[in-house]
């Protein structure tokens, strides 16, 4: 026969207010966390593909458009955009370093895949309740 329907409690205004604040507070803390994480990551040597600071200082003395690999057309456009050879060198020399830290890659993959597996497992459990209540009554 029909199963007993789940009767949820009614949430009082104050509880509703706290729940709305909570979820937003959580968002902002994770934003700050990712900021703080930059430091933590530097400490752990975590991640891959950091943007390496250009070693402009070392080559500053001898920097020319040719040494930066810029042809006359490129040079003209840089200058039109208001750059000198020195200020352009800073941009041009800032290159990504795509060396990959395998441990970090595996950890990240496990977290992402684990997250989705967890979501689907728990959702399916809750979903069976929903379907049961909806169709078996």
């Amino acid at each position: 026969m029909a199963k007993k329907r789940y009767q949820p409690p009614t949430q009082a205004g104050i509880g509703q207010f706290f729940d709305s604040i909570f979820i937003m507070a959580l968002v902002f803390s994770s934003l700050y966390l990712s900021l703080k994480y930059e430091d933590l990551k530097a400490f752990l040597g975590f991640g891959g593909g950091e943007q390496a600071a250009g070693d402009a200082a070392a080559s500053a003395a001898a920097v020319t458009w040719e040494s930066l690999g810029q042809n006359p057309t490129m040079q003209a456009q840089w200058e039109k955009l208001g750059y000198t050879v020195d200020s352009a060198a800073e941009i041009i020399n800032a290159k990504f370093d795509y060396s990959i830290d395998p441990v970090a890659l595996i950890v990240t993959a496990v977290v992402v895949i684990g997250y989705f597996v967890f979501l689907f497992k728990v959702s399916d459990k809750e979903y069976r309740d929903v379907i049961g209540e909806k169709f078996d009554n």
Partner: peptide, 24 residues
């Protein structure tokens, strides 16, 4: 995203995991 923004990726995953636990 991992190439260059790996740390942000993990911080964001942490958020969704905590939020999921809270929801459940």
């Amino acid at each position: 995203t991992f190439l260059g923004y790996g740390a942000s990726l993990l911080a964001i995953m942490a958020f969704f995991i905590v939020a999921s636990v809270w929801f459940h």
